[in-house]
Design a protein around this nucleic acid. Sequence first.
DNA 1: AGCCTAAATTAGCAACATCTAATGTAAGGA
DNA 2: TCCTTACATTAGATGTTGCTAATTTAGGCT
Lengths: 104, 104
Amino acid sequence: MDTADLQAFAARAGEVADILKLLGNRARLMILCKLAELGTASVGDLAEAIGLSQSATSQHLAKLRAEDIVSFRRDGQTLWYEVADPRLGRLLDSLHAIYCEDIT
Amino acid sequence: MDTADLQAFAARAGEVADILKLLGNRARLMILCKLAELGTASVGDLAEAIGLSQSATSQHLAKLRAEDIVSFRRDGQTLWYEVADPRLGRLLDSLHAIYCEDIT
DNA sequence: AGCCTAAATTAGCAACATCTAATGTAAGGA
DNA sequence: TCCTTACATTAGATGTTGCTAATTTAGGCT
């Protein structure tokens, strides 16, 4: 593999690794699994569902937002989050198929 | 979801997140992609293929070994590594399908 | 306006990750 | 035995992560 190929490979691997880094945290993975399961959820719903504080949950959502992995719409005081990136939806499906085959 | 369900969910998410954390590093992801592509490779091969020092490459391999994601067999002075966990093989295939559809 | 709830943001700290440089170990060859 | 090659390991500096606590912003209600 020549230098240009290595750089292209490294660049793409870096992008994908950045996404996987976001999933490589228990709290964020739980958030994304919940969103995949429920379709949409508020910050409070998510915080309770994963057993984390409001602040910590919000900070995790900020990271996911920064990579355009999730989006939200406002309804009054409540923000409803959802998975925004279809590729991430596919990845979450794959993860479920591989690591949660035993779960209904 | 009751407390027992949350704990089971958290436990499983933690296990999967630990694996994804290993993939969430450019160098390690490149190593695993190379192993998936080549089937088997030596430490020196991998270090050169990803443009990293021998030491850093070896330390990444040590982390992957610790989670039983890769294994190796010795042939003289050379250690030949390969992907050991079939679920990780499936995950790498999925990642390739999702994020590298444009690559031959 | 004043108050409440929902969520975001900031500051700060402890824990963790990742590199380089140096050293150790194992195997083969002269 | 001595040297070389292939790889592992350790030590240490530096950057990053993920929490809590405190504060701020936004919206709805009386």
